[in-house]
Computed example of a mutant assay.
Amino acid sequence: MSFFHAGPAPKARGPRPGVLRDGLDLSPGMAVGLFGGSFNPAHDGHAHVAETAMRRLGLDRVVWLVSPQNPLKNARDSAPLNERMASAVAAAALAASGPSMIVSDFESRAGTRWTIDSLRALTARHPGVRFVWLMGSDNLAGFHRWRGWTDIMELMPVAVIARPGSLHHSRTAPAAARYASARVPTRQARLLPDLEAPAWTWLTAPLNPRSSTALRAARDAAAHL
Rank of each mutant, 00 (worst) to 15 (best):
D105I: 01
G148E: 11
V132F: 11
L122V: 05
I116V: 15
D117E: 14
A96M: 01
T112A: 09
R145P: 02
V129S: 01
S108H: 12
M135C: 13
G111R: 02
V132R: 04
I152H: 05
T123M: 05
E107D: 10
H144A: 15
R113K: 09
R113N: 06
P127L: 03
R147G: 05
W149P: 04
M156A: 13
A124P: 01
R145T: 15
L134Q: 06
S104Q: 10
G111L: 04
S118I: 06
E107V: 13
A110L: 02
P127S: 04
E107L: 10
M135H: 02
S97Y: 12
E154C: 11
I152M: 13
L134T: 02
R130K: 15
D138H: 08
P127I: 11
M153V: 08
G142Y: 08
G136D: 11
D117M: 06
S118L: 02
T150C: 01
T123Q: 07
A96K: 13
G142E: 12
S137F: 14
S97H: 15
V129H: 07
R130Q: 11
L134S: 03
R113M: 03
G128R: 02
E107G: 08
L140T: 13
P127M: 03
S108A: 14
S118V: 09
V103K: 03
F106Y: 15
